[in-house]
Nucleic acid binder design. Structure first.
Lengths: 339, 339
DNA sequence: TTGAAAGCGTTACCAT
DNA sequence: ATGGTAACGCTTTCAA
């Protein structure tokens, strides 16, 4: 059974003073005689008094809670974001209220309301996939609750963002493939409804263009298609493919599996680059070259920005873009030395 | 800037009724004329009224928040636990306040106090490694806050538990190795300060004994030693090893790497079994046989038990033990058929 | 230096 | 059917 905890009023009664006096003593604010203070503090100690945060929140209108909405926690990417966020919130004395959205709009909407109802001081969210209806996020903004969005930019939402540049990440990867001698590069495309899919796809196209290689629609496969494996095999049967740039490490892994089945030499015959640097990239063999996103940093910066907004009452949205980096492992060749 | 939200009192004023009336209308409790009710509900709708959970908590002494303390979120094991927990709390309308302890006693202690101060309705925790000082958990119990511990049993703590049977899991794994023809089985032991290490170690010993195989101290290696790789090589040079049972998939992975370097045939020459069924078990090659812990189920059951305690005011601690299962992949041979 | 009172938003109980 | 009041635990302002 939950025990009643001792309150400021309880202490006050026992010492024949008023709650205000006790409050002052315990918070070290206002004038109070050293003797009284000592007396009060000792009694508080004796009873193991703990301030009631709920009551504090009522009067201060501040909860020291931060809401966090993430699609899920099974990808290492989001775990690292979480770790980054926590490194900041922990140190600043904020607690994290977490909601997983499963990338479902319905859950995402509900989470927003829940967090708003919980009166969190601010919200960090990685928008799920549905880019169409962002009303729930607008609502957060309308309510005046600070919001920092991670990962994807939502054009219509005038708020703060911490993102990575998917275009650049993709561009760099494909440029690397080209520099190491690939000319017929397949792109495994991400789900249509995510902006990152589009940006990586764009990076792929631009890198080809920059190097005077033709973009060919036939060399693009949907990574989430049910015929994915067939598509990969077909394309390998039809074209002299020498490189793959995949939307995700998981897609890349599937490709590698097919390639191994077909006894292709990786990377001599065909190079593969994934995206995200999930742990599996290091565990599979050959180890996967991939585009690393600074997930921990993203979380950290997002939390820093959010707390800055909360604590300094900043009104102007800020956007911060973090750099990706290409991790060269065993599925890519060395670059040719260009003179 | 955070906007002031409309309150019951605001609504009451605008309609020239008292807050109590508005409260009744909005909660559908007590007597109220249909007309009034409609009027109030409409106005609430119009202003987008949202009840203030903080205020509700003040009077009800209930927050609908559950505290969760986990060592970290990078292992899939804990993510799955989280997912399992969330599946229940979400559905029952509770929010999760999470704290990562990094398996540090200090952070663990602080987390307990933080959650208690936040007046959570209950706490779920996977105790970190230090099994010596459990005062912080006792404090939770003393405060009368329901507590369910995951993963490890802490002898001195009279509270509810959801655990898996490490002894059985280990026993089954080693029995399998023996059944498939292994006689010289190495055990990679986990960190000394975790109870699970000890239980798996015990399972290993008992399985040997049951099968009239001698337990030999020389065949046990500490998985967290800095000389781990050397130790593995030494043991392979010295004894005719034909099997490994590792405390974790990570340890097992290291062993597999060494074995591959030495051109051992897996599993023909040497079998390997890991523990936990982390994703890497499926990604490495050969795919790792391992003992699967029902992480999602653990989280789910723990949350169910906690909510039952909270909502039904149950005082008697309950312990639930979940079964592990052996996942047979490519690092183990088939069992001999015994007649 | 200390006390008294109001208020944060809500509910519950007792009157009317 | 509705109003009034107290209460939850704390802070803050004003008065003594």
């Amino acid at each position: 059974m939950k025990k009643k905890k001792v309150s400021i009023t309880d202490l006050a009664k026992e010492l024949n003073v008023t709650p205000s006096t006790v409050s002052r003593a315990l918070n070290g604010l206002g004038n109070i005689s050293t003797k009284r203070k000592e007396q009060i503090v000792n009694l508080a100690q004796k009873y193991g008094y703990r301030p009631n945060h709920i009551a504090k929140s009522m009067v201060s209108n501040k909860t020291f809670n931060i809401g966090l909405i993430l699609p899920e926690f099974t990808h290492n990417y989001f775990n690292n974001i979480l770790a980054g966020i926590e490194s900041i919130t922990y140190q600043k004395g904020y607690q994290l209220l977490i909601c997983t959205s499963d990338a479902l709009k319905e859950k995402e909407e509900k989470s927003c309301m829940t967090l708003l109802d919980a009166r969190v001081d601010g919200i960090l969210a990685a928008a799920g996939n549905s880019s169409d209806n962002l009303d729930h996020f607008s609502k957060i903004i309308d309510y005046g609750t600070p919001l920092v969005l991670l990962d994807r930019i939502c054009e219509d939402l005038n708020t703060s963002y911490v993102i990575t540049n998917d275009f650049d990440g993709a561009f760099e990867a494909v440029q690397y493939l080209i520099d190491s001698g690939c000319h017929n590069i397949v792109h495994i495309k991400g789900p249509d409804y995510i902006s990152t899919s589009f940006n990586r796809f764009l990076g792929y196209q631009q890198a080809l263009k920059k190097n005077s290689l033709n973009y060919r629609e036939e060399l693009v496969i949907a990574g989430d298609s049910e015929f994915f494996l067939d598509d990969v095999n077909n394309i390998l049967n039809t074209f002299p493919i020498d490189g793959f740039f995949a939307f995700s490490d998981y897609n890349a892994y599937e490709v590698v599996k097919v390639l191994k089945q077909r006894d292709c030499k990786i990377p001599e015959d065909i190079s593969v680059i994934g995206y995200a640097d999930e742990p599996l990239a290091q565990y599979i063999s050959p180890q996967l070259s991939t585009v690393k996103q600074p997930a921990y940093e993203i979380g950290k910066r997002a939390a820093e920005i959010l707390l800055k907004i909360i604590e300094e009452n900043i009104e102007v949205p800020m956007t911060e873009q973090l750099k990706t980096s290409l991790v060269h492992r065993e599925t890519t060749k060395n670059k040719f030395i260009s003179i």
